[in-house]
Amino acid sequence: MSVMLKVDHISKTFNPGTINEKTALRDISLEMEEGDFITVIGGNGAGKSTLLNAIAGVWPVDSGSITIGGENVTGLADFQRAHLIGRVFQDPMMGTAPTMQIDENLALAARRGKKRTLRWHCSKSEREKYHEQLKSLHLGLEDRLTQKVGLLSGGQRQALTLLMASIQKPKLLLLDEHTAALDPQTAKKVLELTREIVERDHLTALMVTHNMRDAIATGNRLIMMYEGKILLNLAGEEKKKLTVDDLMKKFEEASGEEFADDQTLLSK
């Protein structure tokens, strides 16, 4: 077992020195072993997505360091550390290029972190491979390889984005509430698919969710964030035995606040 992700005392304040100043991450540290699947919960503004964005390199952190797969990426922009990371966003429109074909999107993802040259964007053997991989999604997309992604539904696009994120086994898979914008049934399917892919490819994954049940039922670890800090960090048996009520109680103990405020934001 090796350490896949090491977040070491990172902090981030947005709009410092202005009236909109907001400290989003306060001295956060987190370590993930290879194969860890962490679910992240917390109310609005707790810093869940901010943590993922910091790891993905959307903007530089103010202090601390981030190491992925042994590589210090603190000084790298998002596209420079993309070879280590697979990302699925909350907005199903965000993870794919709508005016491009399904096979073209997959080919773009398959070249993540590789040098892009003047070779043809996708070979025949690759296309056959995509056909097989799309089949495993059970959405009938394998027969629509040359269709524009813009014609797919939100759920289909999210499934495709998942495949794109994992097509080149990433050191770290970042899932930012990727089922939140889907209808409940589709959300369930996409979550199912997520578990399948993470297990099959033995990926290290960090998944933000609003849904406490999903957070408990998914992965081997769970962290709860509050005001830019990690309140709870549960693993193993402790995580397995967890119930929604436990989680709410633990939140109240740790934060010293009534859970009621956040209850509406964290669906059971």
Binding site: A56, D78, F79, Q80, A82, H83, I85, R87, F89, M94, G95, T96, A97, P98, T99, M100, E104, A107, L108, A109, R111, R112, G113, R116, T117, L118, R119, W120, H121, M164
Partner: peptide
């Protein structure tokens, strides 16, 4: 030919969805 190559395809992706392109490691 050019817009069918890896570089040309990345260029089209950049115009179509810059966020996705960055996530795929493209220097937009």
């Amino acid at each position: 030919w050019f817009f069918g190559t890896e570089i040309g395809s990345s260029m089209r992706a950049t115009g179509c969805n810059p966020e996705m392109s960055k996530a795929q490691g493209i220097n937009i």
